[in-house]
Design a protein around this nucleic acid. Structure first.
Length: 264
DNA sequence: AAGACACGCAACCGCAAACAA
DNA sequence: ATTGTTTGCGGTTGCGTGTCT
């Protein structure tokens, strides 16, 4: 259920109207998204506040960063969180606690916000229910280990569940820039690969993964890493070979004239 | 059909860490 | 060493939509 944008004043003309410089808040309009995406794609990120300024957005740098990280980033997975991913979340939450960004860093294509929301709205509730049910049964004093709370686990790779791997909506151009090395601020490079700590291992491991994870228990952290490498859907060096991706990007998602018409 | 409620998601807020001047 | 700025994080809230009564 995607909330319909309620940006009554997508141009920023509203919001009281008089203070042109006043920061906009609330949902992002498609135009704002487009401006932000184009700005970052073509010019990278020096500082987020400058991104907001250069893109002509009346948004805080913070807001721009959040929008990019949680929504516009080309490497985000758009499909719902799979059972396997849910198991990983549960397992990592057990070992790391509510360190959502760390958990997200180990789940390519997922954001901390997404994981946090998923946890708060679904898993936590379910675990609580399970714990309560356990107490009612008198069956145990501890809630069942989260990993065992599962839910039938498909042996298949999550990436293959939904059929052919979808072409990430905006990845190609972004990847071109990344590989080109041209625009590189620190923001754009970290956004393209993933935040920091897992980047080297994930990218290097991607090509060697064997395709299927072992049957190790969910609580096994080594297995989690292995499994996650397996989940990395869009290794940067493969993206350039996706036939027609650029065409799709240009013709459907962001026609050249729609971007070049922006002033920045 | 309509209102109440629950759910899920997007975004904001406040804080702390990192960095620059 | 100090101060100001920016970034990143986790918690929380607001709101649209779906479901139930």
């Amino acid at each position: 259920m995607v909330r319909k944008p309620s940006h009554g004043d997508s141009t920023g003309a509203g919001n009281g109207g008089t203070e042109a410089a006043k920061e906009r808040k609330g949902l992002w309009s498609p135009e704002e998204d487009e401006r932000l995406f184009a700005q970052i794609t073509y010019h990278g990120v020096s500082t987020w506040s400058s991104v907001a300024q250069l893109a002509g957005l009346r948004r805080s740098g913070k807001s721009c960063r959040l929008r990019w990280m949680n929504y516009l980033r080309p490497d985000l997975k758009k499909e719902p969180i799979s059972k396997r991913e849910e198991e990983v979340i549960i397992s990592l939450q057990q070992s790391l606690g509510n360190r959502w960004s760390t958990i997200a860093a180990r789940m390519p294509g997922r954001t901390d916000n997404e994981i946090k929301n998923y946890w708060n709205s679904r898993i936590r509730k379910r675990l609580n229910d399970a714990a309560k049910a356990g107490r009612d049964d008198g069956a145990g004093t501890e809630p069942a280990p989260a990993g065992e709370e599962k839910v039938e686990v498909e042996p298949t790779n999550a990436a293959t569940e939904a059929g052919p791997m979808p072409i990430p909506a905006r990845f190609p151009v972004f990847a071109c820039q990344m590989l080109d090395g041209g625009v590189g601020g620190r923001g754009i490079s970290s956004a393209g690969s993933d935040s920091g700590e897992n980047t080297p291992s994930t990218t290097s491991s991607t090509q060697q993964n064997s395709g299927e994870e072992s049957e190790a228990s969910v609580g096994d952290s080594n297995m989690i890493h292995f499994l996650l490498f397996d989940d990395l859907d869009y290794p940067a060096d493969l993206v350039m070979d996706v036939p027609g991706a650029m065409d799709a990007w240009e013709s459907e998602l962001y026609p050249a004239n729609s971007i070049s018409s922006l002033n920045y």
